[in-house]
C-alpha cells in the first residue's frame, strides 16, 4: 500500500516509516500542514496517517480535505489528545480509525491491515496463516477444515498475532490491544497468560502446530 505519514515529530515519523516499509508498504512523510495539503492534492494514497496538532493547521481539516478529494484513502488519526470530542469529530469527518499516542507499532500495523482488508471488497475475504484460516466477517476460525470455537478475546488475540505474524510482540502491546487502558498492566498480563494458554490448548487440540513462540522476557511471536 502507499501510505502518507503526516507527523511533525521526526523522531516518531522515522520508526513509523521504517516499520511500515518493512511490512512492504511504500511510505512518504511530511511534517507540516501545507506540505501535507500539497501531497494530498497531487498524489493518491491508499492510507494516510494524520496527527491532529500540526504546525500550520489542524489534522482534522486535512481529514475533511481528504474525504472531499480522495474518498478512497483509508485515514487513521494519530493524536496525543485522548479527547473524546476529537475522536468523535475525526470519525464523523470520515476517518477510519483513531489512535492515541503512545501506541505500539504492532497496533498501528493491525489497524492498517484491517483497513486494507475492508478495502479488498470482493474475492478473498479470508486470512490464512499456516494451517489456520480466519474469516473476519463471521469471526470463524478453522484449522484443517475443522472449526475452533474461540471466545471473543481469544479470537482478537489470534487475529492480532496473525496480523503481526513473524514479528516479536511485547506483552504490553498485546494486552493493550485486548483491554485498552481500562485495566492496569499487572492484571492485563495475567489475563494475557490465561488467554494465551487457552488459545494454545484449543489450537493444538485441533492438530494445529504450535506457531506461538514465547520470547523470553518480552512477549510472543507467531511464526510458522
Amino acid at each position: 500500500m502507499k501510505i502518507l505519514i503526516i507527523e511533525d515529530e521526526e523522531s516518531l515519523a522515522h520508526p513509523l516509516r521504517e516499520y511500515l516499509a518493512s511490512e512492504g508498504h511504500v511510505c512518504e512523510w511530511v511534517s507540516t500542514y501545507q506540505a501535507a495539503e500539497e501531497k494530498i492534492g497531487v498524489y493518491d494514497y491508499d492510507c494516510v496517517l494524520v496527527d491532529i496538532m500540526l504546525p500550520g493547521g489542524s489534522g482534522l481539516d486535512l481529514v475533511d480535505l481528504l474525504k472531499k478529494t480522495q474518498s478512497q484513502a483509508g485515514i487513521i488519526i494519530i493524536s496525543a489528545k485522548n479527547a473524546l470530542d476529537d475522536k468523535i469529530l475525526g470519525l464523523e469527518l470520515g476517518a477510519d480509525d483513531y489512535l492515541t499516542k503512545p501506541f505500539h507499532l504492532s497496533e498501528l500495523n493491525a489497524r492498517i491491515k484491517s483497513i486494507q482488508r475492508r478495502r479488498q471488497f470482493a474475492g478473498n475475504r479470508e486470512i490464512k496463516f499456516g494451517d489456520i484460516r480466519m474469516v473476519p466477517d463471521s469471526k470463524e476460525v478453522w484449522v484443517n477444515d475443522s472449526e475452533i470455537v474461540l471466545t471473543r478475546k481469544e479470537y482478537d488475540l489470534l487475529m492480532y498475532l496473525v496480523a503481526n505474524a513473524n514479528r516479536v510482540l511485547s506483552k504490553g502491546a498485546i494486552s493493550e490491544h485486548l483491554y485498552g487502558d481500562e485495566i492496569d498492566q499487572a492484571n492485563s498480563f495475567d489475563f494475557l497468560y490465561s488467554h494465551m494458554k487457552n488459545l494454545r490448548k484449543k489450537l493444538s487440540e485441533h492438530g494445529c502446530p504450535d506457531y506461538i513462540q514465547t520470547v523470553y522476557g518480552v512477549g510472543y511471536k507467531l511464526a510458522a
Partner: peptide, 15 residues
Amino acid sequence: QTPLAVIASNLDLLI
C-alpha cells in the same frame, strides 16, 4: 505522550 510514543515505537522496532 509524544516522547513516550517515540520511545515505544523505537523499542518495538528494536525487538
